[in-house]
């Protein structure tokens, strides 16, 4: 499947990655190569095969509804890039 630089820009934006023009060429090339590789899947007819999302068939285990966690804000926020009054700070979100 063909992939052009515009597609790569779009994907990069979706993934919040900034790609320079020179990188764009490299990525367009290598992503196209990888898509060629994965395109080999099409030699197998998988019609009607149920998709496998998990390696095992075991059902989801449910936990009891109990509060088991304590407050670790201080420790957690020691490693945060920017905090104030117990809040994580980010550049202004415009709605």
């Amino acid at each position: 499947m063909a992939l052009d630089p515009t597609d790569v820009r779009k994907i990069a934006e979706l993934a919040r990655l900034e790609i320079s023009d020179s990188e764009l060429t490299i990525y367009t090339h290598s992503l196209a190569q990888i898509l060629d590789l994965v395109g080999q899947m099409n030699v197998v007819d998988t019609t009607g095969i149920s998709p496998m999302a998990h390696p095992s068939d075991s059902p989801l285990r449910l936990r009891q509804d109990l509060v088991t966690e304590q407050d670790h804000r201080e420790g957690f926020q020691k490693i945060a890039p920017a905090t104030e009054s117990g809040l994580y700070l980010v550049p202004k979100v415009i709605e």
Binding site: T46, P51, M52
Partner: peptide, 8 residues
Amino acid sequence: KAQQLRRL
């Protein structure tokens, strides 16, 4: 498609 192939 990949998930189906994974099953196979």
